[in-house]
Deep mutational scan, measured.
Amino acid sequence: MDVFMKGLSKAKEGVVAAAEKTKQGVAEAAGKTKEGVLYVGSKTKEGVVHGVATVAEKTKEQVTNVGGAVVTGVTAVAQKTVEGAGSIAAATGFVKKDQLGKNEEGAPQEGILEDMPVDPDNEAYEMPSEEGYQDYEPEA
């Protein structure tokens, strides 16, 4: 019985440690998101679009440190934060509304985080759909 109880105690310690790591990862992701939003706020009209992409990228980098179902929630929060940063930029006159959601080359930025393969159960990952990809044929 002692062996059984000791095993359960060790398992509990492992769960607590994993929860603490997840909590730490979420806190880091939130900190990076805040950094990115402050970065966007300090940019001029020309830099705002690039700044919004930076927020998304920093958040995406930190999301990889967070495991399990938390990833889905962090990704949703990050996307809403990026959308909010863009709205703030438009409201303050840093950028025109028609410039939001495009990178410096004018290509749409939507789907940055949505296409990231995420499995809350950590069982399997699927690649994003290939609808947006084109076949590449090298020139002879």
Rank of each mutant, 00 (worst) to 15 (best):
residue 1 M to P: 00
residue 1 M to A: 00
residue 1 M to D: 00
residue 2 D to M: 11
residue 2 D to V: 00
residue 2 D to R: 01
residue 3 V to W: 02
residue 4 F to K: 00
residue 5 M to D: 00
residue 5 M to W: 15
residue 6 K to R: 12
residue 6 K to H: 06
residue 6 K to S: 04
residue 7 G to K: 12
residue 7 G to Y: 13
residue 8 L to E: 00
residue 8 L to R: 00
residue 9 S to K: 10
residue 10 K to A: 05
residue 10 K to P: 00
residue 10 K to C: 06
residue 10 K to Q: 10
residue 11 A to S: 01
residue 11 A to T: 07
residue 11 A to M: 05
residue 12 K to L: 06
residue 12 K to M: 09
residue 12 K to N: 01
residue 12 K to Y: 11
residue 13 E to A: 05
residue 14 G to W: 06
residue 14 G to E: 11
residue 15 V to R: 00
residue 16 V to I: 11
residue 16 V to L: 11
residue 16 V to Q: 11
residue 17 A to L: 12
residue 19 A to T: 06
residue 19 A to F: 08
residue 19 A to S: 04
residue 19 A to H: 07
residue 20 E to A: 05
residue 20 E to G: 02
residue 20 E to V: 10
residue 21 K to W: 12
residue 21 K to T: 13
residue 21 K to L: 13
residue 22 T to V: 13
residue 22 T to F: 13
residue 23 K to L: 09
residue 23 K to W: 11
residue 23 K to Q: 11
residue 23 K to V: 10
residue 24 Q to P: 00
residue 24 Q to F: 03
residue 25 G to C: 05
residue 25 G to H: 03
residue 25 G to Q: 14
residue 26 V to H: 00
residue 26 V to G: 01
residue 26 V to S: 01
residue 27 A to K: 07
residue 28 E to D: 03
residue 28 E to T: 10
residue 28 E to P: 01
residue 29 A to E: 00
residue 29 A to I: 13
residue 29 A to Y: 12
residue 29 A to M: 15
residue 29 A to D: 00
residue 30 A to C: 08
residue 30 A to S: 14
residue 30 A to F: 05
residue 31 G to N: 08
residue 31 G to E: 04
residue 31 G to I: 12
residue 31 G to Q: 12
residue 31 G to A: 03
residue 32 K to I: 15
residue 32 K to E: 00
residue 32 K to Y: 14
residue 32 K to H: 10
residue 32 K to C: 01
residue 33 T to M: 13
residue 33 T to R: 02
residue 33 T to Y: 05
residue 34 K to C: 14
residue 34 K to Q: 01
residue 35 E to T: 11
residue 35 E to N: 08
residue 35 E to S: 09
residue 36 G to A: 15
residue 36 G to V: 15
residue 37 V to E: 00
residue 37 V to F: 12
residue 37 V to K: 00
residue 38 L to N: 07
residue 38 L to Q: 08
residue 38 L to G: 01
residue 38 L to Y: 15
residue 39 Y to A: 08
residue 39 Y to G: 02
residue 40 V to W: 09
residue 41 G to Q: 12
residue 41 G to A: 12
residue 41 G to L: 02
residue 41 G to I: 04
residue 42 S to I: 07
residue 42 S to Y: 12
residue 43 K to Q: 09
residue 46 E to S: 08
residue 46 E to Q: 03
residue 46 E to K: 02
residue 46 E to W: 02
residue 47 G to H: 04
residue 47 G to R: 09
residue 48 V to Y: 09
residue 48 V to N: 01
residue 48 V to Q: 00
residue 51 G to Q: 14
residue 51 G to R: 09
residue 52 V to P: 01
residue 52 V to T: 01
residue 53 A to I: 13
residue 53 A to M: 15
residue 53 A to Y: 14
residue 53 A to E: 07
residue 55 V to R: 01
residue 55 V to A: 07
residue 56 A to T: 13
residue 56 A to N: 03
residue 57 E to I: 09
residue 58 K to T: 10
residue 58 K to M: 10
residue 58 K to A: 03
residue 59 T to L: 06
residue 59 T to I: 03
residue 60 K to S: 01
residue 61 E to S: 04
residue 61 E to P: 03
residue 61 E to I: 09
residue 62 Q to I: 05
residue 64 T to F: 09
residue 64 T to L: 11
residue 64 T to Y: 12
residue 66 V to S: 05
residue 66 V to M: 11
residue 67 G to V: 14
residue 68 G to S: 02
residue 68 G to N: 02
residue 69 A to I: 11
residue 69 A to K: 10
residue 70 V to Y: 03
residue 71 V to C: 08
residue 72 T to M: 04
residue 72 T to P: 11
residue 72 T to C: 05
residue 73 G to T: 08
residue 73 G to M: 06
residue 73 G to Y: 05
residue 75 T to L: 11
residue 75 T to V: 10
residue 75 T to E: 03
residue 76 A to M: 10
residue 76 A to V: 11
residue 77 V to S: 02
residue 77 V to M: 11
residue 78 A to P: 02
residue 79 Q to W: 04
residue 79 Q to R: 07
residue 80 K to P: 04
residue 80 K to N: 09
residue 80 K to F: 14
residue 80 K to W: 14
residue 80 K to G: 12
residue 81 T to E: 06
residue 81 T to W: 04
residue 82 V to R: 02
residue 82 V to P: 03
residue 83 E to W: 13
residue 84 G to E: 08
residue 84 G to Y: 08
residue 86 G to Y: 08
residue 87 S to W: 10
residue 89 A to G: 15
residue 89 A to P: 07
residue 89 A to C: 03
residue 90 A to Q: 03
residue 91 A to T: 08
residue 91 A to L: 10
residue 91 A to E: 09
residue 91 A to C: 12
residue 91 A to K: 08
residue 92 T to D: 07
residue 92 T to R: 08
residue 92 T to Y: 04
residue 92 T to H: 03
residue 93 G to C: 01
residue 94 F to K: 14
residue 94 F to M: 02
residue 95 V to N: 11
residue 95 V to M: 00
residue 95 V to Y: 13
residue 96 K to T: 12
residue 96 K to E: 12
residue 97 K to I: 14
residue 97 K to R: 07
residue 97 K to Y: 01
residue 97 K to W: 09
residue 99 Q to H: 15
residue 99 Q to I: 02
residue 100 L to N: 07
residue 102 K to S: 10
residue 102 K to V: 11
residue 103 N to F: 06
residue 104 E to Y: 12
residue 104 E to L: 12
residue 105 E to S: 06
residue 105 E to M: 15
residue 105 E to P: 05
residue 105 E to N: 09
residue 106 G to Q: 05
residue 106 G to A: 06
residue 107 A to W: 15
residue 108 P to N: 11
residue 108 P to D: 05
residue 108 P to M: 10
residue 109 Q to R: 03
residue 109 Q to D: 12
residue 109 Q to H: 14
residue 109 Q to I: 11
residue 110 E to T: 03
residue 110 E to Q: 08
residue 111 G to V: 09
residue 111 G to K: 15
residue 112 I to M: 07
residue 113 L to Y: 06
residue 114 E to V: 10
residue 115 D to K: 09
residue 115 D to R: 11
residue 116 M to K: 02
residue 116 M to G: 05
residue 117 P to F: 08
residue 118 V to D: 13
residue 119 D to V: 05
residue 119 D to S: 10
residue 119 D to C: 10
residue 120 P to E: 08
residue 120 P to D: 06
residue 121 D to S: 14
residue 122 N to D: 05
residue 122 N to W: 07
residue 123 E to F: 15
residue 123 E to N: 14
residue 123 E to M: 11
residue 123 E to A: 03
residue 124 A to M: 02
residue 124 A to I: 07
residue 125 Y to P: 04
residue 125 Y to Q: 13
residue 126 E to V: 06
residue 127 M to A: 08
residue 127 M to R: 06
residue 127 M to N: 13
residue 128 P to W: 08
residue 128 P to I: 09
residue 129 S to F: 10
residue 129 S to V: 05
residue 129 S to W: 05
residue 130 E to M: 14
residue 130 E to W: 08
residue 131 E to R: 10
residue 131 E to P: 09
residue 131 E to H: 11
residue 132 G to C: 14
residue 134 Q to M: 02
residue 134 Q to N: 12
residue 134 Q to R: 09
residue 135 D to W: 05
residue 135 D to Y: 09
residue 136 Y to D: 04
residue 136 Y to I: 06
residue 137 E to F: 14
residue 137 E to N: 07
residue 138 P to A: 11
residue 138 P to T: 08
residue 140 A to N: 12
residue 140 A to M: 09
residue 140 A to Y: 00
